[in-house]
């Protein structure tokens, strides 16, 4: 490796580590949202309770979409690491479709709930629910924008260490989004759906 390559490699490592720390910070943020949701879950103020508002098959669909997107994102990252642009782009594109599907379902769900009078201002429980799930949704949105930007990078130039570094961090981010969703369906949806 040349001097420049080594420097680039070290910089990418620093970026990956810095981003890892950011993800840890983000994980703490989500823990506090989970904790708050757990505190608020009974604070329904005579409004809708958790056993009334969640849909089983919607949760199944959301979970399936995100889990598959974790796999496709991983396959994209492998391809880009191996300088295989076509395969990389293809998997990112699939990931984007899956993520977009997830967002559509979530927005539908939120809109439906608000229409029923179960908006976030209805009760402490719903405030906690929307904030936790909504923050996760915001992360999905950011991931989606990030993927679009990555596609633009890939379209404009051959794969280089900078693109690989972007992909590496995006993949880490996307896996965190997936892990948080495990928490959400396990702590929010399924306990609400269980009779």
């Amino acid at each position: 490796m040349s001097q420049v390559d080594i420097q680039q490699h070290e910089e990418n490592e620093e970026r990956a580590y810095g981003f890892w720390l950011f993800l840890m910070s983000d994980a703490i943020l989500f823990s506090l949202l989970f904790a708050t949701y757990a505190v608020m879950v009974t604070a329904t103020d005579d409004g809708p309770t958790r056993s009334e508002i969640f849909g089983y098959w919607r949760t199944v669909a959301n979970t399936a979409l995100l889990l598959c997107s974790s796999l496709t994102m991983g396959l994209a990252s492998i391809a880009i690491r191996e300088f295989d642009k076509t395969t990389g782009l293809r998997w990112i594109f699939v990931t984007m479709i899956l993520a977009f599907g997830f967002l559509v379902l979530e927005i539908q769900e939120f809109a439906g709930l608000v229409a029923q009078g179960a908006g976030p201002d209805r009760s402490g429980f719903l405030s906690g629910y929307y904030t936790l799930v909504g923050t996760h949704g915001a992360h999905v949105t950011i991931g989606l924008i990030w993927m679009a930007v990555l596609c633009l990078h890939l379209a404009l130039r051959p794969i280089d260490p900078i693109i690989q570094s972007i992909t590496e961090r995006l993949t880490m981010f996307w896996h965190l989004v997936g892990i948080v969703w495990i928490g959400i369906y396990s702590m929010v949806y399924l306990p609400g759906l269980y009779q």
Binding site: M24, A27, I28, S31, F34, A35, T36, A38, V39
Partner: peptide, 13 residues
């Protein structure tokens, strides 16, 4: 992070 999650979530509950 894992330790703090236990402390913060457990502590809050």
């Amino acid at each position: 992070t894992g330790l703090l999650m236990v402390i913060m979530i457990g502590g809050t509950l």
